[in-house]
Design a protein around this nucleic acid. Structure first.
Lengths: 220, 220
DNA sequence: ACCTGAACACCGTTCAAGT
DNA sequence: ACCTGAACACCGTTCAAGT
């Protein structure tokens, strides 16, 4: 039924580790039932604690939500990093891999992704909660720097003469926008004829990434 | 204070036009206070009706929200259409204009845009509410077809040999993804150094659109 | 046909009080 | 220092009853 409990002692469960327990339960609720059913009181119930207890660890509901999304941002950062290391010296392939990873993450964790980028959580709160989490050793300092990881890929592409000699930051934003937009469009089911199945999605993603590389205008 | 009331007669206000009044009040609340403060009960209060009255016109809260977003989708469609007609015969300029319009809409109506694409409203409900609205003569049949309008631009670009000879649908999705992604990134304040002011935003948008046209790879 | 009022189950948040 | 229980103000939704 419920998540396997710490066997160590009640001490661990009921003191000190409540924060972690709330984060786990909240994340589970988010994934399984969506934000609309993620309620402070339910999270508390799930963990077996009074509904006022979470307020010792999070300022309010939005703060808890922010803390939950941190794991999503971190995962995204890792995926961008792995896109780079998995194709050493080939920025073009790295960029496509980054795109594919991004879309895969979006389809694998739609609720998380919508919460991360849906505008529910104010940036200030996200950053506050991030500072807190870093101080607690939950995440490394660069956990939110997915953009910078992508930028590194673009940078190598430009330096090596593979990509156009344009401002790296601008090109990175172009790439991120494209892949982020595709992700949000797919999650929101905005397409009249959405790609069916993971393979079709991956194929579409690669197509768009290639188109992004080549541009819209004819190459004379 | 409150919106100017219909001077005609109480008949108009309290019967028959409740739906329109709810939509107007809801839209106003959305714009001025955000989705998180848009409450069925508040909308009813604003209109001067009991909190159960809205249920005669909308199945539930989500349906009302969906109906409210229709005006946003319609505006987006109009903007794509005007991007085409404002630069007759110049698909390249049309595409850039479409992008600029899209971003301007996003910055002008952030709350609307987040509600439209934030995942709060299920597609099914949106479509149900759209059918209802069309039947009531509130919107034309193509009010949701912003994508198709953009596709027309791309089509001309490809046919005229200005754009690459690629699947039109795919190229359109590329363009839409890019500009939609940029919009969502800006709205979510995801950039560490966001463009300051409308001029900077427009300049950035044009840059990205040009980059999209030219592509990431060097043009040898 | 359309609206009201009371009722229900559920929230987020606060705070005195407990250990 | 951390948690509980009661309390408050607010929701969304339903339904019998009114006009």
């Amino acid at each position: 039924m419920s998540v396997e409990k710490e066997e160590r002692s009640d001490r661990t469960y009921h003191h000190g580790d409540l924060r972690a327990a709330l984060l786990r339960a909240g994340g589970k609720l988010l994934v399984e039932e969506g934000v609309e059913n993620l309620t402070l009181r339910r999270v508390a119930r799930e963990v077996g604690v009074s509904h006022a207890a979470p307020y010792r660890h999070f300022k309010d509901k939005e703060s808890l939500l922010a803390a939950i999304t941190l794991s999503g941002f971190y995962k995204l950062t890792m995926l961008m990093k792995s896109a780079k290391t998995s194709n050493p010296g080939a920025p073009r392939e790295q960029l496509v891999k980054a795109g594919v990873n991004y879309i895969q993450m979006a389809l694998a964790h739609p609720e998380m992704m919508q919460l991360m980028f849906g505008g529910t959580i104010k940036r200030v709160i996200l950053e506050q909660e991030f500072e807190r989490a870093v101080k607690l050793g939950e995440y490394p300092r660069d956990a939110l720097d997915a953009f910078e990881k992508l930028e590194e890929i673009v940078d190598v592409g430009v330096e090596s003469g593979t990509f156009r000699q344009k401002d790296v930051h601008e090109l990175t934003l172009l790439a991120w926008s494209t892949v982020h937009g595709l992700a949000m469009i797919l999650l929101g089911k905005q397409l009249q004829e959405p790609p069916e199945g993971p393979e079709a999605v991956e194929a579409l993603t690669k197509c768009l990434c290639e188109d992004l590389l080549l541009g819209v205008l004819v190459r004379s």
